[in-house]
Design a protein around this nucleic acid. Sequence first.
DNA 1: CCATGATAGTTCATAGCATTAACTATTTAT
DNA 2: ATAAATAGTTAATGCTATGAACTATCATGG
Lengths: 159, 159
Amino acid sequence: MDVEPFGRRMIELMPHLVRGFARHESNYLSRGEITLPQLWALEHLSRQPTGCPMNALAQFLRVSRPAATGLINRLIAQRLVRRAHDVVADRRIVRVAITAKGQQILDNIWEQKRRMIIDVFGQISPRDRAQYLATLERVVAILCHERPADRSARELARS
Amino acid sequence: MDVEPFGRRMIELMPHLVRGFARHESNYLSRGEITLPQLWALEHLSRQPTGCPMNALAQFLRVSRPAATGLINRLIAQRLVRRAHDVVADRRIVRVAITAKGQQILDNIWEQKRRMIIDVFGQISPRDRAQYLATLERVVAILCHERPADRSARELARS
DNA sequence: CCATGATAGTTCATAGCATTAACTATTTAT
DNA sequence: ATAAATAGTTAATGCTATGAACTATCATGG
């Protein structure tokens, strides 16, 4: 398929896709206790067991530092995250870490998210799923400015 | 590919994907004059030359009616959209339509978005592109088959 | 050694976005 | 004709995001 009509169709499709997933996402978020940006923050902190400086968190979330401060304040109020002024090193740095309660909520949400994806993609054939995922992997690699894989999505799908 | 490992990988991949596209998206939104929800509203109105009732717009955007009112008010303040009380039919209905200025901004954003998508997916083979799009169409169809929104307290109580 | 500048984080003011509850105005149905 | 349903707005509240201004700490070059 030519990239031009592909691009046009993608532009039509993407808002529907984003809103469709966002709707599912908000389903298990709204009846839960956290918001989407809060989820993103928790997910990042969950991958940083040692904790994460505010600045690094703000950069990861691509928001301003005041925005990160507010987000973390609200998460702390719910005891999902804790602040820890690093005593050893640079005393300007404030490290933030996820709490057990935060991790528990995260595990719960991940399970629901996993089920949602399985619900949707369970209606797609295994072959199409594999091809879709392979292309998606390459798209993400391209978006992250990493080297694209040598093998085409089709070759990947076969394996 | 089994749906279980597929789901696990998708959960890992999706934040990167969203973040990757968001970075591009914010490029032409933040230095432009509108926000993402405003863009979605403009895109919908652009497909409805006769104008769109507030209620239908809110349902399409999957937000409450007051949220749509606020969104439209801000777009009207920028002269990107106009209100038109329908004189002929149901006098409760307020139709909203995109203005020439709004369409102009939309065209500009679409062009930038098109270029971005072509940049990314130009690195994917035409065959993989076609398969990816086909699967995406089905995913969107599946996602859209789920419930619309906006239930006022009265409507909720009744159901 | 210390003055200057850079960095980390917060507070404040402002604004967009989204919700529910409560209201007006109009239409529909009994 | 009255009651219920519908379309839209307003008001109150809360989360998210920004830029500017501020404090505290670190780093560097005279």
